Amino acid sequence: MKMVAETLNVARSHINERRGTTPKPRGPYHKGEDAEVLPAIRAIVDARPTYGYRRVTALVNRQRRAEERPAINAKRVLRIMRRNGLTLERSTARRPGRTHDGVVIALRSNVRWCSDHQEIHARNREVVRVLFVLDACDREIIAWLAAANAGISGEMERDLMVAAVERRFGTTKMPHPVEWLSDRACPGLDPGAAPISLRTRPIPRRRLTSSNSSRRCEDHQGGTGLDHSSRS
């Protein structure tokens, strides 16, 4: 016994104690009072199926305090819910919706336009947001709008559409439909509505200026006042 204890580097009293007792069978931990708590948990989960174990614990303890009974631990509630399949499904961070087929490039100009926005952080802590649209074929920026210390609204997106149509076709009436692609995170358009199609009916013209001094683009007597960028 001494040689075994020295080899294992344990005390002989520990070996004697282990030899005289039978090991306890290991299994899932549970308490005898779990069956008493389960009906209250199940009633709350049935009434509020979107609640997690922390909210369920708060409601169970509220009932128990009203009945002058001791509160229970949140880990115990989680263990009971897991054993009975009452926990919520784990979030996979996958958003259902329209899948992108990867086809963006166009074989000719004025068939598919793409819009997006970019934030520029200045040294004076001002944030300039630039909203632009380019042609998917020739990669030319057709029109753009900029706003300082202000968000991009749907009105700016619509003004950008009008400016792009006037810039490319010289009028508000297009000779053929044009597909308008927008990023899912673009604040100007509803993500569920992209892509949209600009039809051949005339687009109502409006002034691109507003009371907001951060708007940089103006429309004077039929001209958009927008600058073209060179083709990349």
Rank of each mutant, 00 (worst) to 15 (best):
T87R: 01
E17C: 12
T50K: 10
A35S: 08
R125Y: 10
A11Q: 13
E68F: 07
T50F: 08
L86V: 00
P23K: 04
L38Q: 01
A58E: 09
V56R: 00
R55W: 02
M81V: 00
D101Q: 05
A40V: 10
R112P: 03
R98F: 08
A71K: 08
H30Q: 15
T92G: 11
I41K: 00
R18A: 15
I72C: 05
G52C: 03
C114H: 09
P28F: 10
K75W: 06
R125H: 15
M81I: 00
I105K: 12
N84Q: 09
E17S: 14
T99M: 14
R62F: 07
G20R: 15
G102T: 04
E126D: 14
P23G: 03
N16H: 13
R69D: 06
N73H: 09
N124H: 05
R90P: 06
V56H: 00
A40P: 01
R125S: 13
G85T: 02
D46H: 00
V127N: 06
R98A: 10
E33Y: 09
E68P: 05
N61L: 04
R26M: 10
R48F: 09
G20S: 15
V104G: 04
A66M: 11
G27E: 06
L38E: 02
I44M: 03
T22S: 14
R65H: 14
D46M: 00
R95H: 12
I15W: 02
P23W: 03
W113M: 02
P25V: 13
T50E: 12
H14E: 11
A106L: 04
E17H: 14
Y29L: 09
V127E: 07
Q63A: 11
D34C: 02
Y53F: 10
R12E: 15
R94V: 08
R42M: 03
S13Q: 08
Y51C: 01
V111I: 12
N73W: 04
H100K: 08
R12G: 08
R65W: 09
D101A: 07
P96M: 05
R83L: 05
A43D: 02
R79G: 01
C114R: 05
R112V: 11
V60E: 00
R94F: 10
G97E: 05
N110F: 07
A71I: 08
I120W: 09
R82D: 02
S109I: 06
C114S: 10
T50Y: 08
Y53S: 02
P96G: 05
R108D: 13
A40H: 06
S109N: 07
H117G: 11
N110V: 05
A43P: 00
R108T: 14
N73S: 11
A106C: 06
R62A: 15
N73G: 08
P49F: 01
R108K: 12
P28Q: 11
E17I: 11
S115W: 04
V77R: 01
Y29N: 10
H14N: 13
G97M: 04
P70I: 03
N84K: 07
A66R: 15
E119L: 12
E36A: 07
R62M: 12
E33A: 06
E33I: 09
R98C: 04
V60D: 00
R94A: 10
G27W: 02
Q118N: 12
R94T: 11
R54H: 09
Q118M: 13
A122K: 07
E89M: 09
T99F: 14
P49L: 02
E67S: 08
V127I: 14
H121F: 13
L78V: 04
G85Q: 04
